[in-house]
């Protein structure tokens, strides 16, 4: 194997679009299976009653992370060719906070609103339209936001580079954090199940 296949020229551009469609189908399928197409289930995360969002997200992250480690280790995938979104500390922290506020008000994130819409939730479609409007507003304000958007750049940066640790150690640490988080989530769910807010 010599991954990434697309970058190494094993599959063409048109084929990559067909592949995108199938990846999307699987992505949407698993989101819906876990119940992330439901705004109430998503919102329950933030009232401690149903930690599905956290559990699913971090399970997916550590699954892919451990997989990437072994693919790289056996030389099946050249990790340095995988696209990394560059780090910009300030806009990503502020963006995350703003995103979180919008998430709990609207009840969805971009991927899950599509799943909600596809399963017939009208509020999911309204949320999508709201997002399109938000993107338009962002685009129009971009000339004024540009300097902040590009503030505090750190380039393409992973924890492995930043802490200068062996990749396996970093993977191990993050998996341990995730497992601890899962254990805590189960505790919180039991405790918060019947509590009034």
């Amino acid at each position: 194997m010599n991954g990434p296949f697309f970058i190494n020229g094993w599959i063409g551009e048109e084929a990559s679009l067909i592949f995108a469609l199938f990846i999307g189908i699987a992505f949407g399928f698993f989101l819906e299976r876990a119940g992330l197409g439901s705004a109430k289930k998503l919102a329950s995360q933030f009232y401690g009653r149903d930690m599905t969002v956290f559990k699913m997200m971090f399970t997916a992250i550590i699954t892919a992370m451990v997989g990437l480690f072994w693919f790289d280790y056996f030389g099946w995938l050249q990790l340095e060719l995988v696209y990394l979104t560059p780090t910009f500390v300030a806009p990503q922290i502020i963006g995350g906070l703003v995103f979180g506020v919008g998430f709990i008000i609207g009840g969805y994130c971009p991927g899950t609103s599509c799943v909600a819409g596809a399963t017939g939730s009208l509020d999911g479609w309204v949320n999508v339209i709201g997002m399109l409007a938000g993107i338009l507003v962002f685009g129009e304000l971009y000339p004024w936001l540009e300097s902040f958007y590009n503030a505090t750049p750190m380039g393409e940066l992973t924890f492995v580079d930043y802490f200068n640790l062996p990749a396996g150690l970093m993977v191990f640490i993050l998996v341990m954090i995730a497992l601890g988080g899962f254990w805590l989530s189960e505790k919180i769910e039991t405790k918060m199940a019947n509590k009034d807010l």
Binding site: M57, L84, F88, G102, G111, V128, M131, G134, L157
Partner: peptide, 29 residues
Amino acid sequence: GGMIMAFGTKLARGCTSGQALTGGALMNV
């Protein structure tokens, strides 16, 4: 909520899928 979220997404260069899941797995700071 959608508007606010979209604004945050664009500011942060990605959403829960493009940043949190993808970048999370790549250990992107």
